[in-house]
Structures are given as C-alpha cells and as structure tokens.
C-alpha cells in the first residue's frame, strides 16, 4: 500500500515540484485547500511557499487540533515556511504559529540576506542515509530558533544556523528538498520510508 500524504495548499505559490517529488518516491499525494482535511491525514506535508501570515491564515482555526494530531504521532514534514509555522511565532508576521516546536522564528543575521542557493547540511539523522553530497537548496530570510532540543541538522551561513528539526514524528527543513536534485530526492524517499514505518 502506498503512503497517503495530505498536502496543505495555502493558496500561495506552486506545489508541483514537491508533489511530483513525493509521487516519485511512491507516495499518493492529496492536495487540500480546506485545512480540516489535515485532521484525517495518514501523513502531513506542509510545503514551503509564501509568507508567514498568509500561510497561517487558513490553518489558524485548526491550530490546536493539528498540534494534537502531531503529538499523537502522525508523521509530518514541514518545508521552509511549512517548517517555520510549526514554531510559536515569527519575526516575519503577526499571526501566531502552530506552536508545536517550542521557540520562535527569527530574522537571519548575515551579510547577505536572503540566503539563496546551495549550501551543505551537517546531519546524522536517518533521513540523511545514503546522501553522498549533502548540498541542498535554500531561499529564506528567517530561520527557526528552538527553545527545546529539536535540532538535528545545521548549516554554516555567517555562523551556524539550525536547518533540520525533529520532534516526535514531525520533521522540519529550512532547505527545499524538492529543489535539491538527487540529494533532495533521497531525503524525501527516506522520509516516505520513515512515515510508512510509523503506520
């Protein structure tokens, strides 16, 4: 049986690449615009397009229910902004985040902002198994700054920033695996395997 992934469409930006990449890993992807659908999901993907407030808008009514679901062990992957909304709040917006990861999203302190392009990720997490060249694509001006011990990968960019998070079965990436060619495809395939094991 293929893994059923429910992917949130917040109404901004395209979801082609992430959808296609996950389908290539053998998953079945259901894109939903009514966020209520996340509550019945077998596996959740929060894609990485748009700004913080715009992204949280549709999710706001279901905040508590989504967190309850993640606490219950539903596997989840948040990419970029989809990861950032898992935190309590962000310097980018006014709306509260989902508050699953304890901590805030802060403005990147670097000579060049946004951080655009390829950079390497240091991680020994299981999702990095089989990745020979840990270069991933980044495009962001903010990053997660957790208050709790959830960082499982970091990247050097004018200092060390946390770029991969895990708490329970919920992963969050600052990078875009769906834009990271072969390495990204291995990462997503590892996530799909991980999610299947949790069912």
């Amino acid at each position: 049986m293929a893994l059923n992934i429910t992917m949130a469409d917040y109404g901004v930006g395209n979801l082609h690449s992430i959808r296609k990449a996950l389908e290539n890993c053998g998953a079945k992807v259901h894109v939903i615009t009514d966020m209520k659908g996340l509550l019945d999901a077998e596996c959740i993907v929060l894609p990485g397009v748009g700004a913080f407030d715009k992204t949280m808008e549709r999710l706001q009514p279901f905040r508590a229910d989504i967190v309850r679901k993640l606490n219950g062990g539903t596997p989840c992957l948040g990419v970029c902004i989809g990861m950032q909304i898992l935190f309590d709040k962000s310097e980018e917006g006014e709306q509260p985040g989902l508050g699953y990861y304890g901590g805030n999203v802060v403005k990147l302190k670097a000579d060049r902002v946004p951080h655009m392009g390829w950079n390497s990720v240091q991680s020994s997490d299981r999702l990095f198994r089989g990745i020979s060249s840990p270069y991933f694509y980044f495009a962001h001006s903010f990053h997660g700054s957790p208050r709790e011990d959830v960082t499982v990968g970091t990247t050097e960019y004018f200092g060390r920033i946390p770029t991969l998070f895990r708490k329970g079965n919920t992963y969050g990436t600052q990078f875009h695996p769906e834009k990271s060619s072969a390495s990204g495809n291995i990462f997503l395939s590892n996530f799909v395997d991980f999610a299947e094991e949790q069912l």
Binding site: V12, G13, V49, G50, A51, K54, I81, P114, M116, A139, H140, S141
Partner: peptide, 8 residues
Amino acid sequence: AKDFGSQC
C-alpha cells in the same frame, strides 16, 4: 514581495 515572498 509581500504576497509571494522576497525570495521569489
């Protein structure tokens, strides 16, 4: 930039 983000 406001709607889609500066990064794009």
